[in-house]
Design a binder for these strands. Structure first.
Length: 265
DNA sequence: ACGTAGTCCTGACGGC
DNA sequence: TGCCGTCAGGACTACG
């Protein structure tokens, strides 16, 4: 389940291996990849023979900046890349991108991933990325000023881009805030803790190459090692690492949410 | 207008 | 052994 740290890990590897090369051809093996927004013919016309001038990331999107357009790729739940010297067949292969430097394979078991062709990143309607200088205390405060539960607000990609189910639970535990709290009820000190812990947690997870719970693999098909560092996610019924409490699991906003009812208030 | 539920999608896993 | 129900959850749609 790639969230910001996993996407950032893959992005850094892609920069090293494919930035500056040219897309010679693309084969789409899953008709759902483009979500019917544009036709396959149009997509192929726009990406063929285009140079990948640079690669960056916003939230959970990897952005391939081509000469004219931007190819934005969202990995969904189970999307992953592999760079090989030649074409390879695989049950979950959904796209093949033929580059000057090799063949970039895109696999996606559950097919939640998508390819978007953009003129501007703004079309993705993504909020502030926490690892940029636009992430500021006042910005965070404004984004979270809502009557909705903080868990839902942190997951909302149009407010803050990059947090998914695992890292929202982790960041709320680190900040000692209950996931059930309404956004506008947060006090200054609590907002300060969130402002500190969101980028801190994400940077730390990147150092470990991200988190693999089940499916995530980087470009070299290695798992992320941050799983061992998780403080609450997946720890239902176990002792809190900070206090005497027991980790509970609740469904909030349709997502399994892990937290300590004793020290997260 | 808002919140909740359903949808997509496949594989892992537990129970019988 | 095999079958079935449930769960995983990012982003979107639909309904009450």
């Amino acid at each position: 389940m790639p969230e910001l740290p996993e996407v950032e890990t893959i992005k850094r590897e892609l920069i090293n291996r494919v930035e500056g090369t040219r897309i010679n051809d693309v084969t789409l093996l899953d008709s759902r990849l483009l979500r019917g927004i544009i036709t396959e013919q149009y997509f192929l016309c726009e990406v063929r023979n285009q140079k990948i001038t640079y690669i960056d990331r916003r939230g959970k999107y990897i952005l391939f900046h081509l000469t004219k357009r931007i190819l934005g790729i969202h990995l969904g739940m189970t999307g992953r890349f592999e760079l090989l010297n030649q074409c390879r067949n695989h049950q979950h292969l959904r796209a093949t991108i033929y580059l000057d430097c090799g063949v970039l394979h895109y696999y996606d078991v559950r097919r939640f991933g998508k390819f978007a062709l953009l003129n501007s990143i703004d079309e993705l309607n993504l909020g502030v990325d926490p690892l940029t200088d636009k992430f500021l205390p006042d910005v965070l405060k404004e984004k979270l000023y809502s009557g909705k539960k903080i868990k839902e607000l942190l997951l909302d990609q149009s407010r803050i881009a990059g947090l998914g189910n695992i890292y929202t639970d982790e960041v709320l535990w680190l900040s000692e805030i209950s996931p059930l709290r309404k956004g506008f009820s947060l006090k200054e000190g609590e907002l300060e803790r969130l402002f500190f812990w969101i980028p801190c947690l994400l940077e730390e997870a990147i150092k470990y190459g991200g988190t693999t719970i089940r499916d995530y693999l980087n470009l070299l098909q290695q798992q992320g090692n941050f799983s061992e560092q998780l403080k609450v996610y997946g720890r239902e019924g176990k002792k809190c690492f900070r206090c005497l409490g027991t980790i509970r699991r609740l469904k909030i906003f349709g997502r399994s949410t892990y937290f300590c009812p004793l020290c997260q208030n």
